[in-house]
Design a protein around this nucleic acid. Structure first.
Length: 950
RNA sequence: AGGACCGUAGCUCAGUUGGUUAGAGCGCUGCCUUGACAUGGCAGAGGUCGGUGGUUCGAAUCCACUCGGUCCUACCA
């Protein structure tokens, strides 16, 4: 073995072997255990969040696979409608200077598929690099024919049950992407703006109670006034009672619009009058529906002012009575220019009453960044309320469990206020809506045109056009758990693996994805007796990986870390180049480059996959934010090196030797029995942490055992046995056997977190431990063996460690070289101390580097430095070695500590309440502590006196 | 406005149902290249657990209030 751990030499090769040998596929027996991968964007690349979640999923899968379950980790990717279409459109513009319209729908879709072929392999090869043991043979893509079948089936069934419908509604419209988006895809950002107060003249000589001949309305969006169809006042508002039913003249347009009474108007805000623009504001739309107001759409799909407005009745049917003509001055202006012109014109007419500054929440599209426009369009919707009800119950009654459970609150809050879901998108890339129209606009829904004709008894010569729109990507990903397993076919995989076991995902997509998956699955997946199936039993919700300052990693901030760079390393300049390439705002490049050079002057060293995975697991605590820490990564890379070198030591001392797994007799030392006992605890804890999804504790438990117990103590304790010619062959065999068996077990224990290094070492260690098999991946996961628990060995070993530490402490505090052998004296102990001393002389001599260890029976001790182990004093004679003042200082420090302790315990024990009310065992424990502390104090005092007397 | 989460060592974070001397990694100080490992070993320094009040024999842990930070949902004519 190499002297240092070099991950790049082992990782790729093992992954290839595993994949070739088919280890990742379900083995077909055992309890089913299934995880559905949250499908990454097919054209994306692996980011830290993926690396994090994939690590945890892989750990779960490998754990259960080793436990003997029939495990399936279903892999696949998502077509990511808007995101992908945007990328391809941008490439098209950059490379050929063309738009998608130049190519036409078919031509453009060919381009998208081309792009998918070209870039789709990026993320899968990165996943392989990360060691993910997914079932590649059944990889799925949401645009697969089979998956499309599932999408169509769901659409048609929901439609036929009346849960999907089409209608003219106000939706969130992205004027750049030219599509509707759901309310979840809108980000409300606080921005500076204004309130503009307008005067709308009253008609027919009416006046307000104050004698004014106009009403004042305020708006943050003046341009919408062109589409106003009413002014609302509160029905309780006395100021305006007499005006309800009268009219105002809409300025600029000169349309007569009514004053209506509606609760929406808040008498305490502004003038108490509200302009109502039902076609351009969600609240006003609701007012319009209540008051049966006309809808006047003044905007084009680009959000520019129309030449002539579109007019509809409240029910969405075209209205031919109201004149839609608009002032010519604004036609074609974009909404911002139109705003300026309208303000100027109103001011010129003396109708701009007041202007005030105001901060408001501006809705922006999460993809385009543009201000979203509420726009009246024909769209498809899912009636979510009936679907939400069982979905809420499934979590309430525990069929689905959120981990950590506080995320259930988030889920409930959203589900109980759920809005209808707009599922149509005016895009080309996606699942085309299975609906057809005749020339009169009648809608027919079916799986294909032929079925539609049959279903609706349409004549063969009736010409039908399929709906141009596609479905929201989340509509298809909502079917992920069962669509990937073959539904609507009744497949073996579906029967075996659905409901799935656990979903691992981020809290940021609970609404987008988790909630919708639950709704859809309960609706479509039923047991044979008709009971709805949940998509998964547990939802393990992860935090979000942020940079070391707690900022979200983003391209525009230039703080993105690529998991592949953690693994393979990257030079400073390459990292700068990567971070500054393809920026949306190129002016940021300089700052990003500067910060990057400052933070990573040496670039990033390679750390290997196992170190990255171990770090991610160790960071996976229950918090919502997880700050990345490069130092942690280094620490766990060192841990890998530690494991590597421990294995090197074990192999050096066992290969070619009798490791006691045959028939030769063996004898176990105290150290052997101790480490085997500790190992059982480690196994117990690891398994229990796995059951609770506490990956941080798994990592900690394994780390602690391997480094602080196995390496720091056990390997050192094995040396005196192996290196001493006087030791019996039985004892040597016992030690060798323990060395290899414990290591082999730890390798299995750690394998789910660090698959590569464990496999590499296991291959060499397993035969020595008498274990055969092709791979550690398919070995049984360790289970604790109660027979190996040995309380006596543990307490004896603690005693040995105590004596060693006592001598080391004296050494350390006195600055005595570890190379210098010291004479050690013991006295005042009990019989048990003597026995322990006699039984463990060689261990003590070796670990404490003691030249001699003598028991003092009444003889006068030479002046010494002292440490206490229980009642026993451990003395190191001072002759020439130890400085008097330093020893006084050291002992005084100890005494001070003890005094504090004594005061604290004394206070506690002289409290009657404590004595009476605390459990007897707690009181007893405290009494013991006090007794011990007093004894120690006394001994140290004696010692101090002697040294001072010198 | 409603809700959630966070505040523990210089930094990043653990701390399971209230009972240890409050822990880890990194950083820091001192000694050491001893035949697995300097990506290392040994020893050590460092915290009145955001604040106040309460419940309790006992609070980092439970309750109330409060300060600071993050986020989600809703609304703002």
């Amino acid at each position: 073995m190499d002297k240092t751990y070099q991950p790049e030499k082992i990782e790729n090769q093992w992954y290839q072997t595993w994949e070739e040998r088919g280890y990742f596929a379900p083995k077909g027996e055992g309890d089913p255990f299934c995880i559905m991968i949250p499908p990454p964007n097919v054209t994306g690349s692996l980011h830290m969040g993926h690396a994090f979640q994939h690590t945890l999923m892989d750990a779960l899968i490998r754990h259960r696979r080793m436990k003997g379950d029939n495990t399936l980790w279903q892999v696949g990717s998502d077509h990511a409608g808007i995101a992908t279409q945007m990328v391809v459109e941008r490439n098209l513009a950059n490379d050929e200077g063309k738009t998608r319209h130049d190519l036409g729908r078919e031509g453009f879709l060919d381009k998208v598929w081309e792009w998918k072929e070209q870039s789709g392999g990026t993320i899968t090869s990165q996943m392989r690099r990360l060691g993910t043991s997914v079932d590649w043979d059944h990889e799925r893509f949401t645009m697969d024919d089979g998956f499309y079948k599932a999408v169509q089936e769901v659409f048609v069934q929901l439609h036929d049950e009346g849960l999907i419908y089409r209608g003219k509604r106000l939706v969130n419209w992205d004027p750049k992407l030219h599509t509707a988006i759901s309310d979840l895809e809108v980000e409300n950002v606080e921005e500076n703006g204004h309130f503009w107060h307008f005067r709308y003249p009253l008609m027919n000589g009416q006046t307000t109670t104050e004698g004014k001949d106009y009403l004042v309305v305020a708006t943050t969006r003046p341009e919408t006034m062109l589409g106003d169809t009413a002014v609302a006042v509160n029905p309780e508002d006395e100021r305006y009672q007499h005006l309800i039913g009268s009219s105002v003249r809409l300025p600029l347009v000169n349309r007569e619009i009514p004053v209506v009474a509606d609760e929406h108007a808040d008498p305490t805000m502004g003038s108490g009058c509200v302009k109502i623009t039902p076609a351009h504001d969600f609240n006003d739309y609701a007012v319009g529906q209540r008051q049966k107001l006309t809808l006047i759409n003044i905007l084009t799909p680009d959000a520019a002012i129309r030449e002539t407005a579109e007019v509809f009745n409240a029910d969405g049917t075209p209205n031919h009575e109201v004149d839609g003509s608009m002032p010519a001055a604004y036609a074609g202006l974009n909404r911002f220019d139109a705003r300026e012109r309208i303000l100027a014109d109103l001011e010129a007419e003396g109708l701009l009453h007041q202007t005030e500054k105001h901060t408001l929440k501006v809705p922006r599209g999460d993809r385009s960044g543009l201000i979203i426009e509420p726009l009246l369009t024909d769209q498809w919707f899912v009636a979510t309320k009936p679907l939400a009800e069982p979905a809420i119950k499934a979590v309430e009654n525990g069929d689905i469990r959120f981990v950590p459970e506080q995320y259930a609150n988030m889920y409930f809050a959203w589900m109980r206020e759920i809005q209808e879901w707009c599922i149509s998108r005016q895009l080309w890339w996606g699942h085309r809506i299975p609906a057809w129209y005749d020339a009169e606009g009648n809608v027919y829904v079916g799986r294909n045109e032929a079925e539609v004709r049959d279903k609706y008894s349409l004549s063969a010569d009736l010409s039908l056009e399929q709906d141009e729109d596609v479905l929201d990507t989340w509509f298809s990903s909502a079917l992920w758990t069962f669509g990937t397993l073959g539904w609507p076919e009744d497949t073996e995989r579906l029967r075996t693996f659905h409901p799935t076991s656990v979903l691992v995902t981020g809290f940021d997509i609970i609404f987008f994805w988790v909630a919708r998956m639950i709704m859809m699955t309960l609706q479509f997946m039923k047991d044979e007796d008709g009971t709805p199936q949940v998509p998964f039993k547990d939802v393990y919700v992860t935090g979000l990986i942020r940079d070391e300052h707690g900022d979200k990693m983003s391209k525009s901030k230039g703080n993105v870390l690529d998991p592949m760079d953690m693994i393979d390393g990257i030079s400073c300049e390459d990292l700068v180049a990567k971070r500054t390439a393809n920026l949306m705002q190129p002016q940021l490049a300089e700052k990003i480059a500067k910060n990057t050079r400052k933070e990573f002057p040496e670039g990033i060293q390679p750390h290997g996959t196992d170190a990255l995975r171990f770090t991610l697991a160790a960071l996976a605590s229950t918090g919502r934010d997880i700050n990345w820490d490069m130092k942690r990564l280094e620490g766990y890379r060192n841990f890998c090196n530690k494991l590597w070198n421990a294995a090197r030591y074990v192999l050096m001392n066992t290969e070619g030797e009798d490791c006691g797994v045959g028939s030769e007799p063996i004898e176990l030392s105290l150290a052997d029995r101790w480490i085997l006992s500790r190992l059982q605890t480690c196994i117990e804890e690891t398994n229990s942490h796995f059951d609770q999804y506490r990956f941080d504790r798994i990592a900690h438990t394994v780390y602690e055992f391997l480094w602080n117990e196995y390496c720091d103590w056990y390997l050192e304790l094995s040396k005196p046995v192996l290196y001493d010619d006087n030791e019996t062959p039985e004892r040597k065999r016992g030690t060798r056997r323990t060395l290899v068996q414990v290591l082999e077990t730890v390798l299995r224990l750690a394998h789910p977190l660090m698959p590569f290094i464990t496999e590499e070492i296991w291959q060499r260690v397993a035969p020595l431990a008498g274990v055969s098999g092709e791979t550690v991946m398919l070995q049984p996961y360790p289970e604790p063996n109660p027979d190996l628990k040995d309380a006596e060995a543990e307490s004896d070993a603690e005693w040995v460690k105590g004596v060693v530490e006592a001598v080391r402490n004296i050494r350390g505090e006195m600055n005595i070289s570890p190379a210098k052998a010291l004479p050690v004296l013991c006295r005042n102990g009990q019989e048990r101390d003597r026995k322990r001393l006699e039984a463990n002389r060689t261990f003590l001599a070796s670990l404490a580097k003691a030249e001699s260890i003598e028991w003092l029976d009444g003889q006068e001790a030479p002046l010494s430095a002292t440490q206490l182990v229980g009642d026993m004093e451990v003395l190191v004679p001072m002759a020439n070695l130890i400085d008097k003042d330093e020893e006084i200082a050291r002992l005084s420090k100890e005494v001070e500590k003890l005094d504090k302790e004594i005061t604290r315990l004394d206070g506690k024990l002289s409290n009657d309440g404590f004595i009476q009310k605390a459990p007897e065992e707690v009181v007893e424990k405290e009494r013991h502590k006090l007794q011990d502390a007093r004894n120690h104090r006394e001994r140290l005092d004696d010692q101090l006196e002697k040294i001072r007397a010198l």
